[in-house]
Design a protein around this nucleic acid. Structure first.
Lengths: 154, 154
DNA sequence: TATGAAAACCCGCCTGA
DNA sequence: TCAGGCGGGTTTTCATA
């Protein structure tokens, strides 16, 4: 996905240089501007200015450390499809899910279930407990889970 | 999830200081060691040593830039459940999915489908085309998709 | 783009538990 | 022995023009 070029984004589209900088930063988010500049034949100052601009535009939301969840002790993950009660708004659902640190991600989706929740837990025991608590949330009618066997990509 | 403490990870477990450093780095992956040190009452050197150690242990996999997919032109996402043919190995599936830059993430899962694929595309037209191509992969028998309406968390 | 001052980094060496 | 602090030479950042 890093090289594929989607259709014209809103605002001024990124040029190839921006793409190069972002590609490098996605591999090493702490790379110095000078180092990145070598790659793009740019001075460190120019690199910084471009990144500042991308930041201001919102293209760059920030920088973060990439952790290994398994080595942090989160060895079990699952996807839980949530079926809401009638009149449960996405805001209510969000408020419910926000309580759980085990919720790694969540989306509202089309189709039979109303939402899809990505859970991370220490082990299956922990996972079971979290799912149980989510099922008891007032806006949640029922749920259907599948445990992750292995991460292929991402 | 940043503060919850899972069960004893393999190897030496992280102490509270490590946790503090990682929490700060997850919010700002380019924060200076000195700045992080202020938070933890540590010198920049000590911070750097700890992070180097976490890196060596694999807990820290690296650093990266956080981009806004929408502003990059990826405005449509979907989850696709993949049902494989018999004898399709995870490796084959991985090889198939690797071809598509639109595959943001993919996992093998328990339950009815064999895998769950997170797709990012420019628009629904693009999404449809990608799903069509994935369905034609030899190891894939059928698929079932739901389009993401909104990202709640993650 | 260039320059220069301030800040951050990185390395060896030392201390103390 | 292992984690943390100190000193300094080098690199990087960042606001000038």
């Amino acid at each position: 996905m890093s090289t594929h070029r989607p259709t014209d984004p809103g605002g001024a589209p990124l040029d190839d240089t921006d793409r190069l900088l972002l590609e490098h930063l996605s591999k090493d988010g702490r790379a110095s501007y000078a180092e990145i500049g070598l790659l793009a034949n740019l001075s460190a100052t120019a690199v910084r200015r471009r990144i500042d601009r991308l930041r201001a535009r919102g293209v760059v939301r920030g920088f973060t450390v990439v952790l290994d969840p398994a080595l942090l002790g989160w060895r079990t993950e699952a996807f839980v499809e949530i079926y809401c009660r009638e009149r449960t708004s996405p805001e209510e659902l969000l408020a419910s899910l926000r309580q759980f640190p085990e919720v790694a991600a969540a989306w509202t989706v089309t189709g039979d279930p109303d939402a899809l929740v990505h859970l991370r837990a220490a082990d299956t025991r922990h996972l079971e407990a979290v799912i149980e608590r989510i099922r008891k949330e007032p806006g949640v009618q029922r749920s259907r889970s599948s445990v992750v066997l292995s991460r292929l990509i991402g």
